[in-house]
């Protein structure tokens, strides 16, 4: 178990989480770390675990980390709130959003 100590931390960068990893599917192969042109990630010190998002605010949303990941379900793209697009069903008029 991790320690439950309250740390004094600076605010998080915004946006903070361009992707969400699923540790159940992610093999920690670090392919996403290598394809990312920006080095948003670093490999996890613990082998086999998902990478760590170190420079999220530098992401240019090229999407190649998510597109080139060989393990389905391991990485999900996570658009920041202000970039989530809308749509409308033509018949019902119902609004959808990613």
């Amino acid at each position: 178990m991790a320690k439950k100590e309250l740390f004094a931390l600076p605010n998080v960068q915004t946006p903070n989480r361009p992707v969400v990893f699923d540790p159940d599917y992610c093999t920690g192969c670090n392919i996403c770390v290598e394809v990312c042109p920006i080095d948003v990630y670093i490999p996890n010190p613990e082998e086999g675990k998902p990478p760590i998002i170190l420079h999220p605010e530098e992401c240019w949303y090229c999407g190649t980390c998510a597109v080139d990941c060989p393990c389905p379900g391991a990485i999900k793209f996570n658009w920041p709130l202000q970039a989530r697009g809308y749509w409308k069903n033509r018949e019902t008029g119902k609004i959808g959003q990613i």
Binding site: Y61, C62, A66, G85, K88, G96
Partner: peptide
């Protein structure tokens, strides 16, 4: 590429839906 991926996963469908 990743944009259409996320839209598809969120249920957007070009047969029924209009993009804002």
């Amino acid at each position: 590429k990743v944009i259409i991926k996320t839209f598809n996963e969120a249920g957007f469908n070009t047969r029924k839906d209009m993009l804002q």
